[in-house]
């Protein structure tokens, strides 16, 4: 199977390269894999995820995502790449002035799909995340768990080849967390999307031995 993500001797840093967070990390993630990346707070999990969607340029080494080299990717190519990704954030990053339905179809809107297609897809996704009755409500009228389900629906709206999730259940109770994990497992198994989740702890719900990478002492290591 081909690699969706490939990092070779990857070094990530802030402050103009002075503060190194990840150093000389080499790893690959294959198409269709579900991978957990864990590590203690401040170890660089979110930094790694930011680099995977191109918000952080590697200091050294190479980072390929979806066959594109993120070290020197153009703005246009990066926009194109991101439009085929689904990104889920701990703080949801929903647009509070927009309805739930409009939030869900944001990637379709960006890609220029017709209103009809957007509406059909929104209904399907909202049914999938069990939020049909909230379609015309605004994010701030929903609970945290519901908002994150909107975030997941948005991430799935364009059948992404890669889903990146940054502590997706960090702010949620156990019930809501389990709903989110179910949705992400479904995306992986039914849509064949590659899923990369960074989290400080793998939830107990996962009995299946998914692949697990750990960030420690600025390196990235295989756990299983």
């Amino acid at each position: 199977m081909s690699n969706v993500i490939s990092a070779s001797r990857l070094t990530l840093a802030y402050d103009g390269g002075r503060k190194e967070i990840i150093k000389n990390a080499t790893f690959q993630i294959k198409r269709g894999e579900f991978v957990f990346i864990t590590g203690p707070s401040g170890s660089g999990k979110s930094t790694l995820l930011k680099s995977l969607y191109g918000a952080l340029i590697p200091k050294n080494g190479t980072l390929m995502v979806g066959g594109l080299n993120l070290n020197d990717i153009s703005k246009r190519k990066l926009q194109e790449l991101r439009s085929h990704m689904g990104i889920i954030f701990q703080d949801y990053k929903l647009i509070n002035e927009w309805t739930v339905e409009k939030n869900v179809v944001l990637p379709l809107m960006i890609a220029g799909y017709s209103t009809d297609i957007q509406q059909t897809q929104a209904q399907k996704l909202l049914r999938h995340v069990k939020l049909t009755e909230h379609a015309n409500r605004y994010p701030l009228e929903l609970s945290g768990g519901e908002q994150q389900r909107v975030g997941v629906a948005r991430a799935l709206s364009k059948n992404p080849f890669l889903i990146l999730a940054d502590e997706p259940t960090g702010n949620l109770d156990e019930y809501s967390s389990n709903v989110i994990w179910d949705l992400m497992e479904n995306a992986n198994s039914q849509l064949s999307a590659t899923v990369v989740v960074v989290t400080h702890r793998i939830p107990n719900i996962f009995n299946t031995p998914y692949r697990h990478l750990i960030i420690e002492n600025r390196g990235i290591y295989e756990v299983r």
């Binding site: 926009q79 194109e80 790449l81 991101r82 990053k93 960006i110």
Partner: peptide, 16 residues
């Protein structure tokens, strides 16, 4: 700002 940054993360151009 937040709306524009979120849209940018999902690949929206500056015009959009």
């Amino acid at each position: 700002r937040e709306r524009m940054q979120t849209m940018e993360i999902f690949g929206a151009s500056m015009m959009l």
